[in-house]
Design a protein around this nucleic acid. Structure first.
Length: 855
RNA sequence: GCGGACGUGGCGAAACGGUAGACGCGGCGGACUUAAAAUCCGCUUCCUUCGGGGGUGUGGGUUCAAGUCCCACCGUCCGCACCA
């Protein structure tokens, strides 16, 4: 072999790793474990550069920790249930299981050449009956333990996917997957009672110090804690059963500014009035308006005066009208509010429209201004002057912050029995029922005699049928001729299976625990879970910042409560890293209809002057965006591996940007990465001069190698992989220039380079390790340790600033004390020239760094 | 509107409050070659009268010293939002 042949090298070392079972994770209590996990992929059929980056990042950590002496668990599986498989079944007639497993085969075949240090013996797919059967067992345990409930609920109905969506899966009023506007339907649904855990899930965020602050903040906002007053208005003229109207408010301090009350169109009171044709017409109008929050938000505020009155809690003689209003959400608080137009823009718009009074409760300090067109809504931490406080502030003044006023108002109302301070959360229960075929069947049966009955544990898994047909819309399980027929586990009579399957977020909420014992006959194995949990480092995309991570945190708690995880695992991910995307320039030529015609990078010839097609057509270069099929700015990992090898792809996605930021894939960058690896290969294989060499050059090289050990180690630990790579470029350059160094020292430096580069380019590292006289596998070699005595230079160059401007530099022995440095500075010719006879007022000497002369 | 992140050469980016621009891309020059490719070496923030002078979005401030800390503003991106 006379040049760098990535393909041959990579195949050879992958075989060697496999033969030695280097990456097989074995329970070994004598060694500290380290569990590194990347978010598992959906088997769409092809891997993309985003996968390569995600797994390259995780592999650096896994290989580094292994070299540092940890017993590393680095597994991979497949998030295999979901709609695309059913869509394929509908469109192409391929059974979902066949489509899915075929995709898994294809993607695994694409992944293996990348040489990730995965323990493939633990691989599973969530659609394996062995996995989802355990998930069913887990579900039954959670049902027994009270974490699951079944309730009639207004649900988000996706009319395209024909399924129910969790609130969390509705984005801007549209289904997160289909993008179709969501409709509202009432169904009986299965729920995980995650809202019961809202407070705990919120508080525990504080302990997740190795999570990005951004993710913790997003979860905090999602859980949405608020404190306020819940109280009941006494009603006048309401139907029987509605003598009181429960209201929740976060601003009880504005009660003196109340001018109306309003209920949601879905409020029971509104429904009770629906017999009135006018009410019915208004409610119909509200429903026709659409149900997305976005539509509700942008619609004109409309209300219907019910004629009912409520008494103001502070003054029974003061009556407020009760409206049904289209902007009140049933899901938040009690679905009923009081309106304070002066301090809420929605209420103000509403009051202006219906001629209701606007009563100022507070104003900016010392301001005479009163609310006109815009409501006055200061932050709750800002002090304001209360014109009519419910209670005075802490210092008996009417000037206080909203928070102080809130405390005072809650206290005032509680003392008089007018209401209670309560904490509410925005987080709602997690609806897990899906009316789809390709998911984990919910293991219960419906018996006409016994009602809803859990399936017996010994009958698990409740398997999906292999012979479903997809010629009708809706749930193929419902259409199956025999699958739904079963016997009741309680009475033995004829019964019908539940045909709802589970949200795929359930599958991904515990897979990390299953990896600790993928073959166990129970969901987890206590000893294995105790040894391997928690995930020490989780790596994935920011798009999962809320749903997947919140659900997993909930599941971990429920699994602890049901005996499936140890107490330490209630927060399953000790550290989280969210990586950026892989982007690429976009290329387009003018299309016939005036819209851009997107061009693949392969069609485009790019040079300094611009870009054009092979036939010379000018190509417009657009901004670099996430690689996507629609814009065709996609680079296929297969092609890159075929042309340059896996190490080049790995090196490039790690090298150019910090991992949390987006990285732009460029053809020139990939070329450069490959060129560098070729250079490393040549350095190891070209026959350097034998013989004694020059001791000084050897010493300098050895020092450079040990500095690289120190720096690369620190950079990897700090996730600064781009900086680690910069240090490796430097070390490579130093070896290349050290042709005069003794051969032994040169080879020692090459072995250090092999070890330091192994997390990024593991195949090439093995190759140069052997070439430089290493024994065994780098993948099994301990991480090198820097020799402290080699890290300091004998002399350092200190810049000398005069009044903060750099004017000279002096060379002093490393570690010189301040007095010695001062003397040298004051004797320096360049310094004396600038001083021009002046006497410095002060000399600041920062040892080994800098000197500043102050005049 | 609220919350957060960010703003540094032609580009991707470095920089415990201590020489701004490490490292890479691109560019320029050179070596090798009949030539090219490959490879290697050097230069590459801007201005400059070659002495220097300016420079990290803008304007202030703190400090011996500010890309870094503080205040205000401008811009970009992300998250949340008629949430009572």
């Amino acid at each position: 072999m006379s040049r760098y042949d990535a393909r041959e090298i990579e195949r050879k070392w992958q075989d060697a790793w496999e033969a030695a079972e280097v990456f097989r994770a074995r329970h070994d209590p004598s060694r500290p474990k380290y569990y590194v996990l990347e978010m598992f992929p959906y088997p769409s059929g092809r891997i993309h550069m985003g996968h390569v980056r995600n797994y390259a990042l995780g592999d650096v950590i896994a290989r580094f920790k292994r070299a540092r002496g940890f017993n590393v668990l680095h597994p991979r599986g497949w998030d295999a249930f979901g709609l695309p498989a059913e869509n394929a079944a509908i469109e192409k007639g391929v059974p979902p299981a066949e489509w899915t497993y075929r995709n898994i085969e294809a993607m695994r075949a694409q992944m293996l050449p990348l040489g990730f240090s995965i323990d493939w013996s633990r691989e599973f797919a969530t659609c394996d009956p062995e996995y989802y059967g355990q998930q069913q067992a887990l579900f039954l345990d959670m049902l027994d333990a009270g974490f699951v409930t079944r309730k009639a609920a207004v649900v988000n109905w996706d009319p395209v996917d024909m399924t129910v969506l969790a609130n969390e899966q509705v984005i801007d009023g549209k289904g997160w997957r289909s993008g179709a506007p969501v409709e509202r339907r009432e169904l009986t649904q299965w729920f995980f009672k995650i809202s019961d855990m809202a407070g705990e899930l919120l508080e525990a965020l504080d302990g997740l110090e190795a999570w990005p602050e951004k993710v913790r903040l997003m979860q905090r906002n999602w859980i949405g804690r608020s404190r306020g007053l819940q109280f009941a208005f006494e009603t006048e003229g309401a139907p029987s059963g509605f003598e009181a109207l429960e209201v929740y408010t976060t601003r009880p301090d504005t009660l003196w500014g109340a001018s109306f009350a309003a209920v949601s169109p879905e409020h029971p009171l509104a429904r009770a009035l629906e017999g009135d044709p006018a009410v019915a017409a208004f409610l119909a109008e509200c429903r026709a308006l659409g149900t997305s929050e976005e539509e509700i938000e942008t619609a004109e505020k409309k209300g219907f005066d019910t004629g009912i009155k409520v008494r103001h809690p502070f003054d029974p003689a003061w009556e407020l009208p009760v409206y049904i209003a289209n902007f009140i959400l049933m899901d938040y608080g009690t679905g009923a509010i009081f309106g304070c137009p002066a301090h809420d823009q929605r209420d103000l718009d509403f009051a202006r429209k219906y001629g209701l009074p606007v009563i100022d409760v507070f104003a900016a300090p010392d301001s005479e201004a009163r609310v006109e067109a815009e409501a006055f809504v200061p932050t709750k931490t800002e002090p304001v002057d209360y014109l009519r406080p419910v209670a005075l502030g802490p210092d008996n003044s009417s000037r206080m912050t909203g928070e102080q006023a809130l405390d005072g108002a809650i206290g005032f109302c509680e003392e008089r029995g007018l209401g209670a301070g309560v904490v509410k959360y925005r987080l709602r229960d997690w609806g897990l029922s899906r009316q789809r075929f390709w998911g984990c069947p919910i293991p219960v049966v419906h018996c006409s005699a016994c009602g809803v009955v859990p399936e017996k544990r010994e009958n698990l898994p409740v398997r999906l049928p292999d012979d479903a047909t997809f010629d009708k819309p809706g749930n193929a399980l419902d259409h199956h001729p025999t699958w739904t027929r079963t016997t009741c586990p309680a009475c033995g009579g004829a019964a019908r299976r539940e045909t709802d399957t589970m949200d795929t977020f359930v599958d991904s909420s515990w897979y990390f625990a299953r990896f600790t014992a993928p073959g166990a006959a129970t969901p987890t194995d206590a000893a294995e879970a105790d040894y391997w949990m928690n995930v020490d480092q989780y790596v994935g995309g920011i798009e999962h910042a809320i749903l997947h991570l919140l659900y997993s945190r909930f599941f971990a708690r429920a699994m602890k409560a049901t005996g499936h995880l140890p107490a330490k695992a209630i927060e399953p991910f000790d550290a989280l890293f969210t990586q950026g995307m892989v982007t690429h320039e976009t290329y387009s030529t003018p299309g016939a209809d005036g819209r851009p015609l997107w061009r693949e990078p392969g069609e485009v010839v790019r040079d300094a002057a611009g870009a054009r097609l092979a036939d010379g057509t000018a190509v417009e270069i657009g901004p670099s965006t996430k690689m996507s099929k629609s814009k065709k700015n996609v680079v296929d990992p297969d092609e890159i591996i075929a042309r340059y090898g896996a190490d080049t792809a790995r090196w490039f996605v790690l090298s150019d940007s910090p991992p949390e930021r987006d990285v732009e894939w460029t053809a020139a960058g990939a070329e450069a990465a490959h060129r560098h690896l070729g250079r490393v290969w040549r350095l190891a294989h070209e026959s350097g001069a034998d013989g004694p060499g020059e001791a000084e050059a050897g010493a300098a090289l050895t020092r450079a190698a040990h500095r690289a050990i120190r720096d690369v180690t620190a950079d990897i630990e700090g996730f600064a992989f781009n900086k680690a790579i910069a240090r490796l470029y430097e070390l490579t350059g130093a070896i290349g220039k050290a042709s005069a160094a003794p051969a032994d020292e040169r080879r020692a430096a090459l072995r250090i380079l092999a070890q330091l580069t192994a997390p990024m380019t593991p195949h090439l590292a093995e190759d140069i390790w052997i070439a430089a006289g290493g024994t065994g596998l780098v993948a099994e070699a301990p991480w090198p340790v820097a020799d402290e005595s080699l890290l300091t230079e004998a002399r350092v160059t200190l810049p000398v600033q005069i009044n903060g401007k750099r004017r000279a530099e002096i060379v002093v022995p490393s570690g010189s004390d301040a007095a010695a440095v001062e003397a040298m500075v004051l004797a320096d010719a360049a310094v004396l020239r600038v001083l021009n006879g002046a006497t410095p007022r002060k000399l600041i000497v920062v040892p080994n760094r800098i000197v500043n002369v102050v005049l």
